[in-house]
Design a protein around this nucleic acid. Structure first.
Lengths: 209, 209
DNA sequence: ACTTGGTTTAACCAATTGGTCAAATTTACA
DNA sequence: TGTAAATTTGACCAATTGGTTAAACCAAGT
């Protein structure tokens, strides 16, 4: 029964994603994942023999949502630096709104066990070809020489850009709690407005005026 | 035996800090904390009756390392915005280097259970008096009117400043892995250089030139 | 109808985990 | 020195947890 099987596997992955991303590897319970998927716990082990195997799959999927996007955007060589920043922030914040729990999940699990990254790299070579920094560095140097932007290296710029996008999402509970009196609606508005704000902020930071 | 007792309690808190900050509430084991402290597990429960109580204490201590600092710096009303940014980034990055695991720990645990923040607020009123945003907002508005800086609200600026400081620390495994080929030494150099870089970046972002 | 294969389940298991308890040990102090 | 209180320990426990197993179920081919 291929139909049923595929459906079950999907249900399992959806459930596992939900539970793992909210509670982490150590906090998640196989029983809870089974319940969430509406199946038996034994069936869970039938599809993914161990908790670790299931986790690995979920982590890999989560990881692959956010990382290739970075490469895609930076690789679009025909765009100016300003256009790239504009395009990246716009797309990345949209992506973050669609998957707000993934960054925190990935960051936390990598902090608990950095070795996961090595495993993901080994299994999925595509992630390794991130040596696009040299190209981006060249572009940054070029535009700096032309007097368009102030000198900055690709790693710093990308860290800043990504950080400005991700930080308000992963640190939401604390920022919302301290700065917004835990008002969820106001924080959503804040996040919405930040898209334009972040772009302006970054471009002004590196623009020569 | 007050001497011994104080010493034991210190050993427990140090051990608990170490284990909780690396493995989180759900990943930490009371036995491991006891081992790390060099004591019996029963003794651990003698001092802190439950895992939750011990965790709460550790979380509160971790929290109080980073939050009041923010207030202190923003409250120094005699400084210009540029001076405040300079001073804040410099001090905050030093603090982060001293306690690199705390931000990730706090962020992760708050993500797992945002309710913790409410409890911390209730027990420790000082954290609640963060209504310094109005004052800082006024200063920002004032300097903007004078044509010194571009208009920006306190919440966005502080989110940006704190994010630029914290993000490279909490996302260290992933950034170091992808951008620095997992070279720890190079990443340490990167972090060291960022102190100056972040200050320049922010000031240029808001400066009117 | 019957066999065969993958799928699903209930019941079960061994190991781990947070937590307890009574006894032993140490300390403070009269 | 004697004793009561605080501290420390080893042994133990109930509950939880990841994982197994044998049997039941079900769809498809013959």
């Amino acid at each position: 029964m291929i139909e049923q099987a595929k459906d079950t596997e999907t249900k399992i992955l959806d459930a596992a994603k939900e539970v793992f991303q909210h509670k982490g590897l150590t906090g998640a319970r196989m029983q809870e994942i089974a319940d969430q998927a509406g199946i038996n716990k034994a069936l869970l082990h039938y599809y993914y023999r161990t908790k670790d195997k299931l986790f690995e799959k979920v982590f890999e999927l989560a990881f692959s949502v956010f990382i290739p996007k970075i490469r895609d955007i930076v690789l679009s060589t025909d765009k100016s630096v300003f256009d790239k920043i504009n395009f990246f922030v716009d797309n990345y914040i949209d992506l973050l709104n669609k998957h707000p729990y993934i960054p925190g999940f990935v960051i936390n699990e990598l902090n608990r066990n950095p070795q996961i990254l090595v495993q993901v790299f080994e299994k999925n070579v595509q992630f390794k070809e991130m040596n696009l920094f040299e190209k981006f560095d060249a572009q940054l140097k070029d535009e700096a020489k032309k007097g368009i932007i102030r000198p900055i290296d690709a790693r710093n710029l990308m860290t800043n850009v990504i950080g400005l996008c991700i930080f308000p999402i992963v640190a939401r509970p604390i920022i919302q709690g301290i700065m917004f009196d835990n008002n969820k609606k106001n924080y959503d508005i804040f996040l919405e407005q930040r898209k334009k704000m972040v772009i302006d902020f970054i471009i002004n930071a590196i623009k020569v005026k």
